[in-house]
Design a protein around this nucleic acid. Structure first.
Lengths: 258, 258
DNA sequence: GAGTGGTCTAGACCACCCT
DNA sequence: GGGTGGTCTAGACCACTCC
């Protein structure tokens, strides 16, 4: 009877040891890997560990924080992914000297982009035709053969005003289904996101002068400074799916959180 | 003696079971979480699991792949971070319908940006003065009081040609050390990266017309379309460290990998 | 209430790479 | 050779949330 009680007490002590400690200390204690991450980040910000320095090993940190090495590992990996730490087997974990500021943003479907601003969205197809691509487009899409390309020109409107002009080229040999899709009600932008899985690509942002055709569609003067995005999208096999040029109406600003 | 041999055999069988299986099958087998990730991604790309659908539970997948649930968890978490899966306790793992295309890029120190292109880098300070900020700048920096601001104007050159014009405002009350730094040899850009830890901020990209002053520095005509980046940087306490306007010379294109 | 993902732990083995 | 990070495993408990 007595021994049973004893073991019961030991069990309870073990189970609640952590909580009891936390309550007694009544201050920040390390529970999860998020806490470890926070503590490490704090030491980085306050220069306890200076740029270029070597951190203690995972095992040592685990001892200090009173948790398993796995937990420390998770935290340090997360920070390393952010680019603030550099880790090497045998080499240890080092504070990166010039932490490159990483920015990441989403490329939303244009409809969502407009609706998110609380504006009404409209879409109008200007032209749609099959053609052999010109030299410039072929280069942008890395096309070797003379494959058939679907050329689309359309305008997206926000609150009945032109918002962005979309010039798009789709490789029919890569996306055969696109040939039978008419893009009068649904924009190519949305259609592709829904129907074609993509894996990579690149994006180029620049300033350009409005040419006459663009100026007319966007209802601005020719030579106006416009913000332009060019995007190339590739599938898992590395084939170019589509190349698109988005010319935004004057005053557009692309906003990104850091 | 015999029993010892028996247990030895069992041990060996257990230890090498996985490898033996791999050798016998002689084909792709699931070893690490990277493999699980690859397999899951493959099923997503080939629409085995369609957008909106629910995946099997981690436990089931672990059984199928012949690994621990932890391993499956790691893989699914990584994919969820990429934005292709949505996970909820009790709700299971679901394929995201509109996978938002996430782009991420680095904001390099301008010197590195130039040198990376294989061009020579030069830097020239145009002006540096302490002043009370105007209304517009105060708004950008979210300043309430009339704190002293360090105003810096400088130009970065690539191959002896103007590359980008830097207009910067630094809050002295947030970064006192900046007052004693002269930015003749080292740009404020680099100085801040090295001396001031930062945590967040925002970035705005847009097209603008060159005004007369900018045109002169950048050696282009007034009214030329220029690419402009405006960046606000905040420290861990949320105070604005600096606001910077980067006006790039004509022809600049910002390139981002997706 | 029960099933799901989120996480911790302790132990183990491996790959890498500096000395 | 040995120390470091990278990862796997099995078991466990918890938090959340849907039914």
């Amino acid at each position: 009877m007595q021994s049973q009680c004893l073991w019961g007490c030991v069990y309870l002590a073990l189970v609640y040891a952590k909580n009891i400690r936390n309550i007694l200390l009544d201050k920040s204690s390390i529970n999860g890997w998020m806490d470890v991450q926070a503590e490490v980040l704090h030491r980085l910000h306050t220069r306890v560990w200076k740029p270029g320095e070597l951190l203690p090993s995972e095992a040592d940190l685990a001892t200090e924080f009173g948790c398993a090495r796995t937990t420390v590992n998770r935290a340090l990996q997360a920070i390393a992914e952010e680019g603030l730490l550099e880790r090497r087997r045998r080499g240890g974990t080092r504070v990166v000297i010039h932490p490159e500021h990483k920015a990441s943003f989403n490329i939303p479907v244009i409809r969502q982009q407009v609706e998110q601003k609380g504006q009404s969205y409209d879409y109008q197809l200007i032209s749609r035709r099959l053609a052999r691509p010109g030299k410039a487009i072929k280069a942008k899409m890395c096309l070797l053969e003379d494959s058939k390309i679907l050329c689309i020109r359309a305008v997206h409107m926000a609150d009945k005003r032109p918002f962005v002009l979309e010039n798009r080229w789709i490789d029919i040999s890569v996306v055969p289904a696109a040939e039978s899709a008419d893009f009068t009600s649904q924009s190519a932008n949305e259609w592709l996101v829904e129907h074609v899985p993509f894996s990579g690509g690149d994006l180029i942002l620049e300033a350009c002068h409005a040419n006459d055709a663009d100026a007319q569609v966007l209802e601005c003067d020719a030579q106006t400074a416009l913000f332009r995005a060019e995007r190339t999208t590739r599938n898992t096999q590395g084939a170019t799916i589509t190349f698109v040029q988005l010319v935004y109406a004057p005053g557009y600003r692309m906003s990104i959180d850091l």
